[in-house]
Design a protein around this nucleic acid. Structure first.
Lengths: 167, 167
DNA sequence: CGGTTTGTTCAGTATTGACTGAACAAACCG
DNA sequence: CGGTTTGTTCAGTCAATACTGAACAAACCG
Protein backbone atom coordinates (compact mmCIF):
# COMPACT_ATOMS: atom_id res chain seq x y z
CA UNK A 1 0.00 0.00 0.00
CA UNK A 2 2.82 2.30 0.90
CA UNK A 3 4.49 1.32 -2.32
CA UNK A 4 1.38 2.20 -4.26
CA UNK A 5 1.27 5.69 -2.84
CA UNK A 6 4.96 6.17 -3.46
CA UNK A 7 4.57 5.10 -7.06
CA UNK A 8 1.59 7.37 -7.39
CA UNK A 9 3.62 10.27 -6.11
CA UNK A 10 6.40 9.50 -8.54
CA UNK A 11 4.14 9.51 -11.56
CA UNK A 12 2.67 12.78 -10.37
CA UNK A 13 6.03 14.49 -10.10
CA UNK A 14 7.01 12.95 -13.43
CA UNK A 15 3.93 14.48 -14.97
CA UNK A 16 4.63 17.85 -13.37
CA UNK A 17 8.21 17.82 -14.62
CA UNK A 18 7.06 16.84 -18.08
CA UNK A 19 4.74 19.82 -18.13
CA UNK A 20 7.70 21.92 -17.07
CA UNK A 21 9.81 20.74 -19.97
CA UNK A 22 6.95 21.19 -22.39
CA UNK A 23 6.39 24.74 -21.24
CA UNK A 24 9.87 25.71 -22.36
CA UNK A 25 8.76 24.95 -25.88
CA UNK A 26 5.94 27.40 -25.28
CA UNK A 27 7.98 30.46 -24.40
CA UNK A 28 7.25 29.99 -20.72
CA UNK A 29 9.74 29.38 -17.89
CA UNK A 30 9.98 25.85 -16.65
CA UNK A 31 8.46 26.75 -13.31
CA UNK A 32 5.38 28.10 -15.05
CA UNK A 33 4.82 24.73 -16.66
CA UNK A 34 5.33 22.97 -13.37
CA UNK A 35 2.75 25.20 -11.77
CA UNK A 36 0.30 24.26 -14.49
CA UNK A 37 1.11 20.61 -13.94
CA UNK A 38 0.50 20.99 -10.23
CA UNK A 39 -2.79 22.78 -10.76
CA UNK A 40 -3.96 20.06 -13.09
CA UNK A 41 -3.54 17.58 -10.27
CA UNK A 42 -4.98 19.73 -7.49
CA UNK A 43 -8.49 19.01 -6.35
CA UNK A 44 -9.18 22.53 -5.13
CA UNK A 45 -7.55 25.84 -6.02
CA UNK A 46 -4.02 25.91 -4.60
CA UNK A 47 -2.79 28.71 -2.40
CA UNK A 48 0.25 30.81 -3.21
CA UNK A 49 2.12 29.29 -0.28
CA UNK A 50 1.15 25.75 -1.17
CA UNK A 51 2.48 26.14 -4.68
CA UNK A 52 5.81 27.43 -3.41
CA UNK A 53 6.08 24.64 -0.87
CA UNK A 54 4.97 21.79 -3.11
CA UNK A 55 7.32 22.75 -5.92
CA UNK A 56 10.12 23.78 -3.61
CA UNK A 57 10.66 27.16 -5.23
CA UNK A 58 10.90 30.69 -3.90
CA UNK A 59 7.88 32.88 -3.39
CA UNK A 60 9.40 35.26 -5.90
CA UNK A 61 9.23 32.62 -8.59
CA UNK A 62 5.65 31.80 -7.72
CA UNK A 63 4.72 35.45 -7.94
CA UNK A 64 6.40 36.01 -11.30
CA UNK A 65 5.16 32.84 -12.91
CA UNK A 66 1.58 33.02 -11.71
CA UNK A 67 1.50 36.52 -13.16
CA UNK A 68 2.74 35.17 -16.49
CA UNK A 69 0.18 32.38 -16.43
CA UNK A 70 -2.69 34.67 -15.51
CA UNK A 71 -1.66 37.07 -18.29
CA UNK A 72 -1.57 34.17 -20.72
CA UNK A 73 -5.04 33.20 -19.54
CA UNK A 74 -3.94 29.71 -18.60
CA UNK A 75 -4.57 30.16 -14.90
CA UNK A 76 -7.12 32.05 -12.82
CA UNK A 77 -6.62 33.79 -9.53
CA UNK A 78 -9.52 33.11 -7.22
CA UNK A 79 -10.31 34.48 -3.79
CA UNK A 80 -11.16 32.21 -0.90
CA UNK A 81 -13.51 33.82 1.62
CA UNK A 82 -11.86 34.29 4.98
CA UNK A 83 -8.34 33.75 3.68
CA UNK A 84 -5.96 36.49 2.71
CA UNK A 85 -3.86 34.26 0.51
CA UNK A 86 -4.18 34.19 -3.25
CA UNK A 87 -5.50 30.98 -4.71
CA UNK A 88 -5.00 29.69 -8.22
CA UNK A 89 -6.66 27.15 -10.43
CA UNK A 90 -6.51 26.14 -14.06
CA UNK A 91 -8.60 28.26 -16.37
CA UNK A 92 -11.59 26.34 -17.68
CA UNK A 93 -10.37 26.97 -21.23
CA UNK A 94 -6.69 26.43 -20.59
CA UNK A 95 -6.46 23.95 -23.46
CA UNK A 96 -7.79 26.56 -25.80
CA UNK A 97 -5.31 29.12 -24.64
CA UNK A 98 -2.42 26.78 -25.29
CA UNK A 99 -3.80 26.00 -28.71
CA UNK A 100 -4.17 29.69 -29.46
CA UNK A 101 -0.58 30.30 -28.48
CA UNK A 102 0.55 27.72 -31.01
CA UNK A 103 -1.70 29.14 -33.68
CA UNK A 104 -0.46 32.63 -32.93
CA UNK A 105 3.13 31.56 -33.50
CA UNK A 106 2.28 29.90 -36.78
CA UNK A 107 0.47 33.00 -37.94
CA UNK A 108 3.47 35.14 -37.15
CA UNK A 109 5.69 32.87 -39.19
CA UNK A 110 3.14 32.96 -41.99
CA UNK A 111 3.25 36.73 -42.04
CA UNK A 112 7.02 36.76 -42.51
CA UNK A 113 6.60 34.08 -45.13
CA UNK A 114 4.03 36.06 -47.08
CA UNK A 115 6.19 39.18 -46.94
CA UNK A 116 9.20 37.45 -48.39
CA UNK A 117 7.12 35.75 -51.05
CA UNK A 118 5.69 38.98 -52.41
CA UNK A 119 9.05 40.73 -52.30
CA UNK A 120 10.68 37.97 -54.28
CA UNK A 121 11.53 38.67 -57.94
CA UNK A 122 9.51 36.62 -60.43
CA UNK A 123 12.49 34.71 -61.77
CA UNK A 124 12.76 32.74 -58.55
CA UNK A 125 9.77 30.66 -59.47
CA UNK A 126 10.90 27.52 -57.73
CA UNK A 127 11.48 29.29 -54.43
CA UNK A 128 8.12 30.98 -54.76
CA UNK A 129 6.44 27.67 -55.35
CA UNK A 130 8.11 26.27 -52.26
CA UNK A 131 7.09 29.24 -50.16
CA UNK A 132 3.57 29.00 -51.45
CA UNK A 133 3.37 25.37 -50.48
CA UNK A 134 4.83 26.15 -47.10
CA UNK A 135 2.21 28.83 -46.59
CA UNK A 136 -0.59 26.58 -47.76
CA UNK A 137 0.51 23.95 -45.31
CA UNK A 138 0.55 26.42 -42.46
CA UNK A 139 -2.86 27.76 -43.33
CA UNK A 140 -4.22 24.22 -43.41
CA UNK A 141 -2.71 23.53 -40.00
CA UNK A 142 -4.07 26.76 -38.58
CA UNK A 143 -7.51 26.03 -39.96
CA UNK A 144 -7.36 22.53 -38.56
CA UNK A 145 -6.42 23.76 -35.11
CA UNK A 146 -9.05 26.47 -35.22
CA UNK A 147 -11.71 23.87 -35.98
CA UNK A 148 -10.48 21.90 -33.04
CA UNK A 149 -10.68 25.01 -30.87
CA UNK A 150 -14.24 25.64 -31.97
CA UNK A 151 -15.21 22.07 -31.19
CA UNK A 152 -13.61 22.35 -27.78
CA UNK A 153 -15.50 25.54 -27.06
CA UNK A 154 -18.69 23.67 -27.72
CA UNK A 155 -17.66 20.86 -25.41
CA UNK A 156 -16.82 23.27 -22.62
CA UNK A 157 -20.08 25.12 -23.01
CA UNK A 158 -22.12 21.96 -22.85
CA UNK A 159 -20.16 20.77 -19.83
CA UNK A 160 -20.68 24.04 -17.98
CA UNK A 161 -24.37 24.22 -18.74
CA UNK A 162 -24.78 20.52 -17.97
CA UNK A 163 -23.31 20.58 -14.48
CA UNK A 164 -22.50 23.79 -12.67
CA UNK A 165 -18.90 24.31 -11.71
CA UNK A 166 -18.06 23.20 -8.17
CA UNK A 167 -17.16 26.47 -6.50
CA UNK B 1 15.26 49.63 -57.85
CA UNK B 2 18.14 49.52 -55.46
CA UNK B 3 15.66 50.16 -52.67
CA UNK B 4 13.57 47.25 -53.84
CA UNK B 5 16.43 44.85 -53.62
CA UNK B 6 17.43 46.15 -50.23
CA UNK B 7 13.92 45.75 -48.95
CA UNK B 8 13.79 42.29 -50.43
CA UNK B 9 16.96 41.35 -48.61
CA UNK B 10 15.55 42.69 -45.35
CA UNK B 11 12.42 40.62 -45.56
CA UNK B 12 14.53 37.58 -46.33
CA UNK B 13 16.72 38.02 -43.28
CA UNK B 14 13.61 38.78 -41.25
CA UNK B 15 12.13 35.51 -42.39
CA UNK B 16 15.33 33.62 -41.63
CA UNK B 17 15.52 35.12 -38.17
CA UNK B 18 11.88 34.29 -37.54
CA UNK B 19 12.58 30.69 -38.42
CA UNK B 20 15.47 30.83 -35.99
CA UNK B 21 13.23 31.99 -33.16
CA UNK B 22 10.58 29.42 -34.02
CA UNK B 23 13.12 26.63 -33.98
CA UNK B 24 13.86 27.28 -30.34
CA UNK B 25 10.28 26.27 -29.64
CA UNK B 26 11.09 23.02 -31.41
CA UNK B 27 14.02 21.88 -29.31
CA UNK B 28 16.47 22.97 -31.95
CA UNK B 29 19.23 25.59 -31.65
CA UNK B 30 18.51 28.93 -33.21
CA UNK B 31 21.13 28.41 -35.88
CA UNK B 32 19.41 25.23 -37.00
CA UNK B 33 16.24 27.19 -37.63
CA UNK B 34 18.15 29.84 -39.51
CA UNK B 35 19.69 27.20 -41.72
CA UNK B 36 16.24 25.89 -42.52
CA UNK B 37 15.10 29.42 -43.29
CA UNK B 38 18.05 29.91 -45.60
CA UNK B 39 17.44 26.63 -47.39
CA UNK B 40 13.81 27.53 -47.93
CA UNK B 41 14.97 30.59 -49.83
CA UNK B 42 17.77 28.95 -51.79
CA UNK B 43 17.15 28.08 -55.38
CA UNK B 44 19.68 25.26 -55.46
CA UNK B 45 21.17 23.12 -52.70
CA UNK B 46 23.51 25.30 -50.62
CA UNK B 47 27.08 24.32 -49.93
CA UNK B 48 28.51 23.94 -46.46
CA UNK B 49 30.70 26.99 -46.98
CA UNK B 50 27.90 29.10 -48.37
CA UNK B 51 25.72 28.41 -45.35
CA UNK B 52 28.50 29.43 -42.98
CA UNK B 53 29.21 32.59 -44.94
CA UNK B 54 25.61 33.67 -45.55
CA UNK B 55 24.64 33.25 -41.91
CA UNK B 56 27.94 34.52 -40.58
CA UNK B 57 28.50 31.58 -38.26
CA UNK B 58 31.42 29.25 -37.67
CA UNK B 59 31.94 26.09 -39.66
CA UNK B 60 31.65 24.21 -36.40
CA UNK B 61 28.10 25.46 -35.94
CA UNK B 62 27.19 24.56 -39.50
CA UNK B 63 28.54 21.07 -38.99
CA UNK B 64 26.71 20.48 -35.71
CA UNK B 65 23.42 21.93 -36.83
CA UNK B 66 23.28 20.32 -40.24
CA UNK B 67 23.86 17.03 -38.47
CA UNK B 68 20.93 17.76 -36.16
CA UNK B 69 18.72 18.71 -39.08
CA UNK B 70 19.65 15.67 -41.11
CA UNK B 71 19.01 13.44 -38.11
CA UNK B 72 15.63 15.08 -37.68
CA UNK B 73 14.95 14.46 -41.35
CA UNK B 74 14.28 18.11 -42.04
CA UNK B 75 17.25 18.53 -44.34
CA UNK B 76 19.01 16.32 -46.86
CA UNK B 77 22.68 16.14 -47.67
CA UNK B 78 23.22 15.89 -51.38
CA UNK B 79 26.38 15.40 -53.39
CA UNK B 80 27.26 17.66 -56.28
CA UNK B 81 29.30 15.89 -58.95
CA UNK B 82 32.77 17.35 -59.26
CA UNK B 83 32.63 19.21 -55.96
CA UNK B 84 34.04 17.94 -52.72
CA UNK B 85 31.86 20.16 -50.60
CA UNK B 86 28.70 18.95 -48.90
CA UNK B 87 25.49 20.42 -50.19
CA UNK B 88 22.20 20.67 -48.33
CA UNK B 89 18.63 21.21 -49.27
CA UNK B 90 15.27 21.03 -47.56
CA UNK B 91 13.79 17.57 -47.35
CA UNK B 92 10.80 17.19 -49.61
CA UNK B 93 8.68 16.28 -46.61
CA UNK B 94 10.15 18.80 -44.18
CA UNK B 95 6.69 20.04 -43.23
CA UNK B 96 5.70 16.57 -42.25
CA UNK B 97 8.76 16.08 -40.13
CA UNK B 98 8.02 19.28 -38.22
CA UNK B 99 4.46 18.16 -37.74
CA UNK B 100 5.62 14.78 -36.51
CA UNK B 101 7.92 16.43 -34.00
CA UNK B 102 4.98 18.32 -32.56
CA UNK B 103 2.83 15.21 -32.49
CA UNK B 104 5.63 13.28 -30.83
CA UNK B 105 5.84 15.79 -28.01
CA UNK B 106 2.11 15.69 -27.46
CA UNK B 107 2.17 11.92 -27.34
CA UNK B 108 4.91 11.97 -24.75
CA UNK B 109 2.88 14.30 -22.58
CA UNK B 110 -0.13 12.12 -23.09
CA UNK B 111 1.78 9.09 -21.86
CA UNK B 112 2.71 10.84 -18.60
CA UNK B 113 -0.86 11.98 -18.34
CA UNK B 114 -2.26 8.50 -18.74
CA UNK B 115 0.16 7.10 -16.20
CA UNK B 116 -0.84 9.58 -13.54
CA UNK B 117 -4.52 9.08 -14.31
CA UNK B 118 -4.42 5.35 -13.75
CA UNK B 119 -2.31 5.67 -10.62
CA UNK B 120 -4.75 8.11 -9.08
CA UNK B 121 -7.01 6.85 -6.28
CA UNK B 122 -10.71 6.72 -7.19
CA UNK B 123 -11.73 9.36 -4.67
CA UNK B 124 -10.11 12.08 -6.74
CA UNK B 125 -12.91 11.98 -9.24
CA UNK B 126 -12.75 15.63 -10.20
CA UNK B 127 -9.05 15.47 -10.97
CA UNK B 128 -9.58 12.31 -12.95
CA UNK B 129 -12.30 13.96 -14.95
CA UNK B 130 -9.99 16.88 -15.70
CA UNK B 131 -7.15 14.59 -16.74
CA UNK B 132 -9.50 12.61 -18.91
CA UNK B 133 -10.66 15.75 -20.66
CA UNK B 134 -7.08 16.87 -21.06
CA UNK B 135 -6.19 13.54 -22.62
CA UNK B 136 -9.21 13.58 -24.89
CA UNK B 137 -8.23 17.02 -26.10
CA UNK B 138 -4.71 15.89 -26.85
CA UNK B 139 -5.89 12.83 -28.69
CA UNK B 140 -8.18 14.98 -30.78
CA UNK B 141 -5.33 17.31 -31.60
CA UNK B 142 -3.04 14.45 -32.47
CA UNK B 143 -5.68 12.88 -34.69
CA UNK B 144 -6.29 16.21 -36.36
CA UNK B 145 -2.60 16.72 -37.08
CA UNK B 146 -2.23 13.17 -38.32
CA UNK B 147 -5.06 13.70 -40.78
CA UNK B 148 -3.30 16.79 -41.96
CA UNK B 149 -0.09 14.83 -42.35
CA UNK B 150 -1.84 12.18 -44.40
CA UNK B 151 -3.35 14.81 -46.66
CA UNK B 152 0.04 16.43 -47.09
CA UNK B 153 1.60 13.11 -48.01
CA UNK B 154 -0.95 12.82 -50.79
CA UNK B 155 -0.18 16.30 -52.02
CA UNK B 156 3.53 15.62 -52.09
CA UNK B 157 3.07 12.35 -53.92
CA UNK B 158 0.94 13.95 -56.58
CA UNK B 159 3.41 16.79 -56.94
CA UNK B 160 6.34 14.44 -57.32
CA UNK B 161 4.59 12.21 -59.84
CA UNK B 162 3.24 15.26 -61.67
CA UNK B 163 6.54 17.03 -62.29
CA UNK B 164 9.90 15.46 -61.61
CA UNK B 165 12.08 17.24 -59.14
CA UNK B 166 14.47 19.74 -60.77
CA UNK B 167 17.86 18.32 -59.96
C1' DC C 1 -0.06 52.41 16.12
C1' DG C 2 3.89 48.22 16.12
C1' DG C 3 3.85 43.30 14.40
C1' DT C 4 2.60 39.66 11.14
C1' DT C 5 1.34 37.71 6.91
C1' DT C 6 1.23 37.99 2.06
C1' DG C 7 2.70 39.36 -2.42
C1' DT C 8 5.78 42.11 -5.63
C1' DT C 9 10.08 43.84 -7.49
C1' DC C 10 14.67 43.96 -8.51
C1' DA C 11 19.56 43.29 -8.37
C1' DG C 12 22.52 39.54 -8.37
C1' DT C 13 23.70 34.70 -8.95
C1' DA C 14 23.67 30.42 -11.17
C1' DT C 15 22.80 27.44 -14.76
C1' DT C 16 22.04 26.09 -19.14
C1' DG C 17 23.42 25.39 -23.60
C1' DA C 18 24.58 27.80 -27.92
C1' DC C 19 28.50 29.12 -30.29
C1' DT C 20 33.35 29.47 -31.34
C1' DG C 21 38.37 28.39 -32.08
C1' DA C 22 41.60 25.22 -32.44
C1' DA C 23 43.12 20.80 -32.96
C1' DC C 24 42.19 16.84 -35.54
C1' DA C 25 40.84 13.48 -39.39
C1' DA C 26 39.98 12.50 -44.13
C1' DA C 27 39.93 13.15 -48.77
C1' DC C 28 41.93 15.23 -52.55
C1' DC C 29 45.95 17.46 -55.38
C1' DG C 30 50.76 18.68 -56.87
C1' DC D 1 54.86 12.36 -50.06
C1' DG D 2 53.89 17.47 -48.11
C1' DG D 3 50.07 20.91 -48.84
C1' DT D 4 45.19 22.25 -49.33
C1' DT D 5 40.42 21.90 -48.74
C1' DT D 6 36.63 20.19 -46.21
C1' DG D 7 34.22 18.48 -42.30
C1' DT D 8 34.03 16.88 -37.33
C1' DT D 9 34.84 17.14 -32.41
C1' DC D 10 35.61 19.04 -28.14
C1' DA D 11 36.99 22.08 -24.49
C1' DG D 12 36.11 26.62 -23.25
C1' DT D 13 33.71 31.04 -23.47
C1' DC D 14 29.90 33.66 -23.66
C1' DA D 15 25.15 35.06 -23.40
C1' DA D 16 20.55 34.53 -22.10
C1' DT D 17 17.55 33.95 -18.59
C1' DA D 18 15.55 31.31 -14.86
C1' DC D 19 15.64 31.58 -10.18
C1' DT D 20 16.62 33.37 -5.66
C1' DG D 21 17.17 36.52 -1.53
C1' DA D 22 16.34 40.61 0.30
C1' DA D 23 14.23 44.80 0.50
C1' DC D 24 9.88 46.73 -0.04
C1' DA D 25 4.68 47.63 -0.12
C1' DA D 26 0.10 46.55 1.36
C1' DA D 27 -3.26 44.59 3.90
C1' DC D 28 -4.62 42.72 8.07
C1' DC D 29 -4.51 42.05 13.43
C1' DG D 30 -3.55 42.96 18.41
Amino acid sequence: MRGMLQKNHETETAFIEEMGVLSQADDLPRIAGRIVGLLVLEEKPASFGRIAEKLGVSRASVSTNTRLLVEAGLVERVAMPGDRQDYYRLAADSHLRMLRRIVGRMERLNAALGAVETSLPPEKAEVKRRLCEFGRFHLATIACLNDLAAATVDRINSLISGSERTS
